[in-house]
Amino acid sequence: MTIGGRVWKYGDNVDTDAIIAARYLNTSSEAELAAHAMQDLDPSFAGQVKPGDILVAGKNFGCGSSREHAPLALKACGVACIVAESYARIFYRNAINIGLPILECPEAARATLAGQTLEVELASGRIRNLDTGETYHAVAYPPFMLDLIAAGGLVPYTRAQLQQQAAR
């Protein structure tokens, strides 16, 4: 699976209140979550982000709450992939569980600038900056995680696994 998109760039410790503030948690409507994504950090984001865009950030992306609304809000507004120096543990698990690919690559995260275009190849972990020509390598996903992302998340993946087991 290859993802190509324009970059939105943020710093270290982007917390779950910045990604989706708790005052918008009265809903699980994806459209409504998307409308408020990143609002307190970057009010221009939700209105201008385009499907396929890539979010690039520093250390400990997604720290704070366990709310799954955080990766859901980003996925719902079209973010195709996140590249960061590192992630907070619950965000990492939640993002994979809902089928939002996120990669850890400090070199790419540090060197990439807002507005540039990245091309991300999930199977190999290869990240290319189409503006600079630079190539970086994130830790590649193991095959089951690629399957999980392709299936759309943990629940459809598990359901498919169970169906396969039942069919045997």
Partner: peptide, 21 residues
Amino acid sequence: DSHATSYGAIGAFGTGVGTRD
């Protein structure tokens, strides 16, 4: 809830998870 780590106060392995987990 992320503060499920509180249960470690009594030596329980408490940890926060999201909706799907």
